[in-house]
Computed example of a mutant assay.
Amino acid sequence: MNITTGKQKRPQRLVVYTPEGFGKSTLGSKFPAPLFLDMEKGGTDHLDVARVTADSYAEAKEVVAHVTGNSSEFGTLVVDTADWLEKRIIEHVCKTNKQDSIESFGYGKGYTYLAEEFQKFLHSLDGVITAGVNVLVLAHSHVKPFTPPDAAQGYDRYELKMTKQTAPILKEWADALLFGNFQTRVQDRQQGKARGVGGTQRVMHTEHSAAWDAKNRFGLPAKVEFGVEALNELIVPHKGPRIDSKGSEASESVTTPESAPDALDPILVAFEEAFKAKGLEIGEVVDFLKLRGQLSDSEGFVDVGKGYAQRATENIEKFAEIVKETLA
């Protein structure tokens, strides 16, 4: 039995959503050695960053697989944006099932396929985390009416600009869901009307409010300045050679050996190598462990207990057989 204590620093699953044109991509460019998965076709043209423009869901998956297998080249994978990724997945689901639109499946079946495929993509991002690379998912916000079940009247609130099938999945997956907006205040009413003033200072909300969704597991202040500085303690620095926007190796490394965090636990590395040798992928193992209650819905491969991983590795033949039977 391998018992560990204390905090374990690892790459984080961060989701940042804001109104359009707020500076999400600029924030992502400040993360360690970022590679942008540009789903918006030109959304990062104004930035001097490394990027891959994905015109389809298949191309997006290829980028994730490349980062997972070449993790030393990157410090952060930036998905820009989740709502455009969702559109590409919808296109994939419709094409695969020979449907004209997500609505044409009937009985909400198309949205079920969408949610399943979106969950698989998040599992693939867990593989990026396991490889030692931060994951930052950017998304747009929109205002939607909301009526709590225990209230007589509803109100408007900011939400992820995604379908009701995928937004909850992304929120549960994230270690931190952060909402960026301009700081405003309501001036005293004059002639029966209230006037908003301010609106120039960018802030990031880290805790849930009636007006927006947000969460964090790190004890961040409820409101911080919108910038990477507020998140520095959460971000794992890049340990390998930095790749510049032209795809060349940069002359300097982002971190020194003294400041670099520990690599992924060797027990998990051995476990991953063992089940991959038996034809299993990380997403399949995570699905199995969630079904068995070894992981919660919001946890990924990096959260697997070390003792469990070691026992599974020692009995990998039986483990792989059970996983395949369960998921068949």
Rank of each mutant, 00 (worst) to 15 (best):
F118L: 03
E117K: 13
G110H: 01
F74L: 07
E91H: 14
V49I: 05
L268P: 02
A139I: 00
I90C: 08
V128L: 08
K290F: 03
C94F: 09
A54L: 01
F22T: 09
G108N: 01
V197D: 03
D48M: 10
V128Y: 08
T184S: 12
F36C: 05
K41H: 12
I102W: 00
G240A: 06
H142Q: 10
S253L: 12
L327T: 09
L264F: 05
V64W: 04
F301M: 15
Y158Q: 14
K324P: 01
N2A: 12
L177T: 14
Q119P: 00
F218P: 00
P237V: 07
F146L: 09
P145G: 08
Y113L: 11
G6F: 05
S298M: 12
T200C: 06
E225T: 12
A82W: 05
Y57F: 12
K239L: 06
D175F: 08
G42V: 07
K239S: 12
A131S: 14
E321H: 13
G227R: 13
V302I: 12
F146D: 11
D156V: 07
T255I: 02
A312C: 13
A210V: 08
L268D: 05
F275H: 04
A65L: 04
L37I: 02
R189H: 05
L14Y: 05
E321G: 08
N181W: 09
G192C: 03
E233D: 14
V63H: 00
F226K: 08
G300V: 00
K318D: 07
G240K: 02
E159T: 15
V269D: 04
E258G: 03
L125R: 08
R311T: 12
V224A: 09
D100M: 12
S29I: 03
P32I: 06
L138P: 02
G6T: 04
I3R: 10
E299H: 07
V78I: 10
Q119D: 07
R195H: 13
Y155Q: 07
L295T: 02
G180M: 10
V286Q: 10
L170Q: 06
T18L: 06
R292C: 11
S251P: 02
V143R: 15
Q187E: 15
D303H: 15
T326L: 11
E273V: 08
R13V: 00
N70E: 07
K239E: 09
G293W: 00
F118Y: 13
E103I: 11
F146H: 15
Y113F: 14
K290P: 00
S296C: 06
K215H: 08
K306Y: 11
L122E: 02
H123D: 13
D80S: 11
A260M: 05
E20T: 10
A115R: 15
K324D: 04
K306L: 15
K24L: 03
L136C: 07
A222V: 09
F22E: 11
P11E: 09
V135I: 01
V63C: 01
K324H: 05
S296A: 14
I3W: 06
F118W: 01
P149Q: 13
R157S: 09
P221S: 13
G28H: 01
E40L: 11
L27V: 03
P19I: 02
A230R: 12
A152W: 07
S101C: 06
M162I: 01
E172Q: 14
D188P: 05
F288P: 00
E59Q: 14
T53P: 02
E252W: 06
V67F: 02
S25R: 02
G300C: 03
P237W: 07
A230I: 08
F31M: 12
R292A: 15
G21M: 04
V323P: 00
G23N: 09
